[in-house]
């Protein structure tokens, strides 16, 4: 455990609370992609399957896993019930089947081992790297976002970005290297680069998030 990883995980946790707070304060899920949320639920359910048998890993890991699964399921539940009037299937249209199919293909081609758990783990890593695309696509179509939504996206993107120095740290200091997670994590962070740039140049300077 190192500082980068802790900060990354906290950023991940904070992002979920910002999203719930956004829905509560605006009484709406406008601007949030249901498709991205469903992809994240798939990511957590396939990666964190091991909560049922690895009680010994750490209480920290197990509790975080449970929180991620339950809070994302709760977010989806809220979006499909309480806040469903703000859902806009006309805007949230990214072809998610390609993302699931691509992640599935990579998982079957390059798992660390051919076991159900390892293939699903690899699938979850690749799927996570692109799960934000429906959300970013939606943002591009609307051309603007509420400030609280941009904070959510920043915290979510910062989580994987902070894992990169964590992986470097572990590689140099612990001799631990996980090529699948590292390559996918770098791709994931690159997908956020435009967003990070606009967040930095506009939102952090008090302006509204608008695409040029």
């Amino acid at each position: 455990m190192n500082l980068f990883r802790i900060l990354g995980d906290l950023s991940h946790l904070v992002s979920i609370f910002i999203l719930l707070q956004k829905m509560r304060s605006t009484r709406s899920c406008a601007g949030i992609s249901l498709r991205t949320q469903i992809l994240y639920l798939m990511v957590y359910c396939t990666r964190y399957l091991d909560i049922f048998w690895t009680f010994n890993a750490s209480l920290y890991n197990s509790s975080m896993k449970l929180v991620f699964i339950l809070s994302t399921a709760y977010t989806i539940y809220l979006m499909r019930t309480v806040y469903k009037t703000a859902l806009d299937p006309q805007i949230d249209t990214f072809a998610t089947y390609y993302l699931v199919g691509g992640a599935g293909l990579l998982a079957v081609l390059f798992p660390y081992k051919y076991t159900v758990y390892e293939v699903l783990w690899s699938f979850s890593i690749w799927l996570e790297s692109v799960a934000i695309l429906p959300q970013l696509f939606m943002l591009q179509r609307t051309g603007e976002a509420e400030t609280i939504t941009t904070h959510y996206l920043f915290a979510l993107g910062a989580y994987r970005a902070l894992y990169i120095p964590n992986w470097l740290y572990r590689w140099f200091l612990e001799g631990h290297f996980d090529p699948i997670a590292t390559v996918a994590g770098i791709i994931q962070t690159l997908l956020y680069s435009d967003f990070f740039y606009i967040y930095y140049t506009k939102v952090l300077k008090g302006k509204k998030f608008e695409l040029p």
């Binding site: 995980d9 990666r47 690895t54 890993a57 750490s58 890991n61 991620f68 783990w121 996980d178």
Partner: peptide
């Protein structure tokens, strides 16, 4: 050679 431990990150 030490066997690779399971996935220990989130």
């Amino acid at each position: 050679v030490e066997e690779k431990k399971g996935h220990d990150e989130l």
